[in-house]
């Protein structure tokens, strides 16, 4: 190619590029407008929840964007009428235990899939993956009956038991372990490390990122879980916070102030996690798909 040809191309390209830049400027203004609108739609309901919860009872129906007078009346009312603190602690216990146990069973099972070839291994793997597709509503009656037989209705442990393992944790961890360099595992084995020590001494420390993002995901989804507790709990003291919220919505009418206060309290821990670990939370949700 001669220098002339290059020059010609450069001169040609220049006006083109300028035109493209202008296009982007205009487009991005419109793009911002669209995104700002979408942001408002996504954020306003959450803002309105907090704003309503802070209005005094006689100003609940005000429509000013910012509460003219603020009060914690709704919160004290909500705390007095149902054992919210107890419910929050229950939810915390259930979520934390579910997260730890699900990670444990997930790590063990994933390690088996990643480390060995064994009889029926792909069959078992498929069977694990398929459980992800079984809708909760299909197995809910037998599960309920089983819990009833075990005498665990209205207990915290009944909320945790069926979630001792999940296809999601097993599959995600198995994927991560499979892409783990084989040489490192082999080297550890040469040093005489058994499979147990390789798992906890080599694999787990190196998979911290995956484990942490999975932990966030399990914790948040367990915290937000509603149907299994709704089926099982009978008394407010053994309930989780999601059930507590529902207690302010009755067919006779809604107590909007306390309802918004309870909703805010229920969302607070998750929102705090989100604000602190925003990038990791988004990533962990995107990696795992929706569910």
């Amino acid at each position: 190619m001669t220098t002339d040809a290059i020059k010609a191309q450069l001169t040609l390209a220049r006006p083109l590029r300028r035109k493209a830049a202008e296009g982007i400027g205009l487009n991005s203004a419109a793009g911002h407008l669209v995104m700002v609108l979408l942001s408002i739609v996504c954020l306003f309901p959450v803002y309105w929840m907090v704003a309503t919860s802070l209005r005094p009872a006689n100003a609940i129906f005000e429509t000013s964007l910012w509460p003219t007078t603020m009060s914690l009346e709704n919160y004290t009312y909500a705390l007095d009428s149902i054992p919210i603190l107890r419910m929050l602690i229950n939810t915390l216990v259930v979520s934390a235990l579910t997260t730890v146990v699900q990670l444990l069973t997930g790590l063990l099972a994933a390690y088996a899939f990643a480390r060995w070839r064994f009889r029926f291994d792909s069959l078992v793997y498929t069977a694990v993956a398929l459980t992800w597709l079984v809708p909760f509503q299909v197995v809910m009656i037998p599960n309920y009956l089983l819990i009833a037989q075990m005498g665990l209705l209205d207990t915290i442990s009944a909320l945790i038991l069926p979630n001792f393992a999940s296809a999601l944790a097993i599959l995600l961890l198995a994927q991560a372990m499979r892409s783990f360099p084989k040489e490192v595992v082999e080297a550890a084995r040469m040093d005489g490390a058994g499979s147990w020590r390789i798992l906890w001494g080599v694999m787990v420390p190196n998979l911290r990122g995956t484990i942490a993002s999975l932990a966030i995901l399990i914790f948040i989804s367990t915290w937000n879980e509603y149907f299994w507790p709704l089926l099982l709990t009978r008394t407010a003291d053994n309930s989780v916070i999601q059930i507590g919220i529902q207690m302010f919505m009755t067919s006779e009418g809604n107590q909007w102030g306390p309802l918004m206060a309870a909703s805010t309290l229920a969302s607070l821990p998750v929102l705090v996690i989100y604000i602190v670990l925003q990038r990791q939370v988004i990533q962990s949700f995107m990696k795992s798909g929706i569910r």
Binding site: P45, I220, N224, M260, S263, A266, V270, L271
Partner: peptide
Amino acid sequence: IIAPVVAAAV
């Protein structure tokens, strides 16, 4: 990340 019950209430 908002709980379905909270979303429903709001």
